[in-house]
């Protein structure tokens, strides 16, 4: 009788231990390493892509000038050539940073005046969740244009 009681006690201890360890393991395994830092990196990446892109000089002026020219005129090259420059720069940068499978969308929207939105890149980027984005503003006179860049893995 005493032996049987001991056996039962030991069995209960084993079961409790297994449950505790299972809980601890599942907690440890479910923690994806550095998830916050990965999000921070993606934000830095897309922000830098947007700001650097707008500051870059091309034979058609800076990319920021090309964007403003859509709203206010003053293209240095043809509109087609100017638009191609934007696509070239973004695609070359994505390739050089080891991300050829990323898709992107550059979108502009007038903030305090009436005009249309404009897009460069793949408009389907924002159809699926999981994209990351950055926003900045361009000014011309008293007019402000919101510029947004979206990046998504294919």
């Amino acid at each position: 009788m005493k032996g049987q009681t001991s056996m039962v006690a030991i069995l209960i201890s084993i079961v409790l231990l297994v449950f505790i360890m299972f809980f601890l393991f599942s907690t440890a395994l479910s923690e994806t390493p550095g998830e916050d830092t990965k999000a921070e990196y993606r934000n830095l990446y897309v922000t830098n892509m947007l700001i650097s892109l707008l500051n870059t000089d091309t034979e058609c002026g800076t990319v920021g000038d090309i964007v403003k020219a859509f709203y206010f005129g003053g293209y240095d090259c043809s509109q087609d050539e100017s638009n191609k420059k934007i696509g070239e720069l973004v695609n070359r940068t994505l390739l050089a940073t080891g991300n050829p499978d990323y898709v992107w969308l550059l979108e502009t929207r007038p903030e305090n005046f009436i005009s249309s939105e404009r897009q460069w890149g793949d408009s389907r980027v924002t159809d699926e969740p999981g994209f990351w984005d950055a926003t900045t503003f361009l000014s011309s006179g008293g007019n402000r244009i919101e510029v947004k860049l979206y990046i998504q893995t294919k």
Partner: peptide, 24 residues
């Protein structure tokens, strides 16, 4: 075995987190 296994997993996780933080 379970305690060492748990320690091993948490060490691996904190190594990756440390590396990500350092690169950022």
């Amino acid at each position: 075995v379970l305690i060492f296994g748990f320690q091993f997993i948490t060490l691996g996780t904190s190594y990756s987190t440390e590396l990500e933080g350092k690169s950022m």
